[in-house]
Every structure is written in structure tokens, then in C-alpha cells.
Amino acid sequence: MPVRVAENSVPSQVSGTNSEHTSPPACTLLSVGQAFSGTQNVSSLQKEEAWRVNVRIQGCDLEHGYLCGTMEALNVPMADTPVVTFWEGEIVDTKNYTFNTGKWEATPDDDKRHWMKFQCFEPLLSQVEVDGGKSLNLSNYPYIFMRWKEQYFVNVGTDCGLTIAGFYYVCFSCSDGSINGYYYDPNSSPFQKLELKSTNEGRSGFSFSSYELQ
């Protein structure tokens, strides 16, 4: 789903170095236990293909810009069962992480080409080009940008014929809980699009569970 920037919510630039209140907002739709489902388009020049995907948020530590969960890919060719991976996410909060990836074989140009795929990134571009977005105040911006990196296969071996070498550039909409992402791996088809929507397990409304670590 294309995302549109609300007029009154263009992020401002912060002065000084205090970044305490400039991180993205906490959003209940992106909290632990929340589930999403949708597709990942894996089409290549040869053929059109899309996998059904389910995502579940398992951990969230906003102070460290950390998010993690599982991603389940269904109807994957060659796989007998759905393939589940565990991923860890970096939240672009300008404190722990900026828009510059600086690893996973992603150049600043790759970053720009991928972030630019999200319409709501456009208002941020000029500042991101200056300092990676470090001086942006994202605390009132209704979108949360992240990078999700799959860490291990949960239910299959590494010999399953699939790779988790790449990572996702992700944009989450706080208003409806939709997630858009693009998979980046120099050795895979470019711009594989991930589209997910918040799910409610057959309920007529939203339900929120929670755990707390001691």
C-alpha cells in the first residue's frame, strides 16, 4: 500500500545534540505480540512469483532501537513446510541508528535508492543526505523506518536452498499498522517488495498482549 505523508507531520530538524525526544514514537501496533501478514514479491525476469508471509513481533527495546521477531514464508517452492526465520531490526531513531546502513554490503547509494522507494521518506531526503538524518526529529512522524536482518532459520536447516544473506529496508505506518519493505541482497533479485498488514486473528478489533522481562 502506498504511504502518504500527512501535511502537518513533516519532521523538523533539531537544534543541539539532545536526542532524547527525537526518536520515533512508541506505537502499539508495532509492539510485542503483534502479527502481520501479506506477501513478498520474489518475481524475477523469468517469472512472476510471490510468497505469502506472516510476521510476528517478539521483542522490542526502543531505548536501544531494537526490534525482533519471526518471519514465516508460506508456499515457498522446494520447501515442504513454511520456512520460519528469526530477524532482528534496527529502528532508525537517529540515536542508535541512522538511515546510513554502513554494513551488509549496502552503499550510501543503495540506501538512498531503497529509502526513496517509500513516498514518506521524500521530506527527509535532503537532511539525510547531509548527515544520515542524525539531526531529524522523528518523534511526531507517523512512520517508522527500520532495517530487518534475518539471523537464523528457526525450523529448517541452512541447506534448505534459501538464503538470508540480505536484509530489508522497512517502513511502518503508525496509523494503520501496515508495513512495506524492500529486500536488499546484491546477489538476489533487486527490490523484492514486502507488503504486510496488521492482522487480528479473526477478531472484530485489536488485541494487545504483552510480556515483561525482569
Binding site: Q58, G59, D61, C68, T70, F86, E88, Q151, Y152, V154, L213, Q214
Partner: peptide, 13 residues
């Protein structure tokens, strides 16, 4: 143990 088991990555595994 309480501190070590705060590792969500390992809890998930």
C-alpha cells in the same frame, strides 16, 4: 540468570 535471560534472541531460540 535473570540478567542473562533478558536476551530476546536466545529466548526466541
Amino acid at each position: 540468570l535473570k540478567s542473562i535471560t533478558r536476551s530476546i534472541k536466545n529466548l526466541s531460540a
